[in-house]
């Protein structure tokens, strides 16, 4: 809007020219957004359609938008094929992700409560230390961690993927501490008068009120663990111990042309299912969590 268009019209916010211009900018925005959305979603649509194609239909060019008849058998084949061990890998991924959620939520909540409730000489410095580890790149510490877990005899087991989650995550501690800090101190005074121990103040009073914040923590921990590739690549050697990301990557062993793309896409689809379900159930938590912590 040029300055002259608004000059002198200050008393009437919605002048006719202004309104027309607003309508235009809305229409242009809408068209651009439709184009971008189409671009963003079309690869996923292609994933769905490829997962339902027969091997013959894969080779048709130009690529078909929809297969003639959906080949649901591709999905069954993943579980039937004993070589890929897809079912086992799905189980492994669930075990790791659920343990990661339990470990991270419990440990981060404990630590966050400590930082939110007490102020000691060292607490400010220690919290700064927590924050400073948020940016720490995992590759910078992965080699000694790997050597440590290998010395403990945990190579090719799921434990190195699970155990680190029981020591709190800097992001989650930060998020929960912000939440706990908003709780009224009267709550704790009342609890103390009733003779609650400090731990019961945490367990019986704070946690039940922290449901939404903990749900956010749980969701992002689950996604992070579910999608992690680097850690399993370091630790897991045998097919039956693989989690889904490394399992999927290893399925693509025959490069580029010969891989059974319909099966690969079906496997990718099934890998995305828990995330999609989570998103459908708790979309608000996603948005909040991202906005609060900047997690991607």
């Amino acid at each position: 809007m040029s300055p002259s268009a608004t000059a002198g019209l200050q008393a009437q916010p919605a002048s006719r020219a202004g309104r027309r211009e607003q309508l235009w900018s809305k229409a242009v925005s809408l068209i651009l957004l439709l184009l971008v959305t189409a671009a963003m979603l079309s690869p996923l649509a292609f994933m769905v359609s490829t997962s339902l194609k027969t091997s013959k239909e894969l080779l048709i060019y130009p690529p078909q938008l929809l297969p003639d008849a959906p080949a649901w058998g591709n999905y069954a084949e993943l579980f039937r094929n004993g070589e890929i061990k897809f079912g086992q890998q799905y189980m492994n991924s669930l075990i790791v992700a659920v343990s990661a959620v339990v470990g991270t939520v419990l440990s981060s909540a404990l630590v966050a409560f400590g930082f939110a409730r007490y102020r000691t000489k060292a607490s400010g410095f220690l919290f700064l230390l927590v924050l400073s580890t948020m940016m720490l790149p995992y590759p910078a510490i992965m080699i000694p961690q790997f050597l440590l877990f290998t010395k403990l005899g945990l190579h090719d087991s799921l434990l190195p993927l699970i155990l680190p989650n029981f020591f709190g995550s800097a992001y989650m501690i930060f998020l929960l501490k912000q939440f706990f800090s908003t709780m009224p101190s009267e709550l704790y005074e009342a609890g103390r008068i009733d003779g609650c121990s400090e731990f019961r103040l945490f367990w019986n009073l704070t946690l039940p009120l922290a449901g939404p914040a903990m749900a956010t923590v749980a969701i992002f921990t689950f996604i992070g663990s579910w999608n992690d590739l680097l850690t399993p690549v370091l630790y897991l050697d045998s097919q039956e111990n693989f989690t889904l990301p490394i399992g999927l990557a290893s399925m693509m062993s025959s490069k580029f042309r010969l891989a059974p793309w319909n099966l690969l896409m079906a496997a990718s689809m099934l890998t995305a299912v828990p995330i999609i379900l989570l998103f459908a159930v708790a979309q608000r938590r996603f948005v909040e969590g991202i906005v609060l912590t900047g997690i991607k």
Binding site: V36, T37, M40, L41, P43, L44, F46, M47, T50, I223, W226, N227, L229, L244, P245, I246, L248, A249, M252, F256, W261, L264, M265, S268, T271, A272, I275, F279, F286, K296
Partner: peptide, 19 residues
Amino acid sequence: AIYFPSMISGVAMSLLFTW
């Protein structure tokens, strides 16, 4: 719709884009 693809695992997206 715009947020959705960024949730999908890096490996699944990588396979998809290879194809």
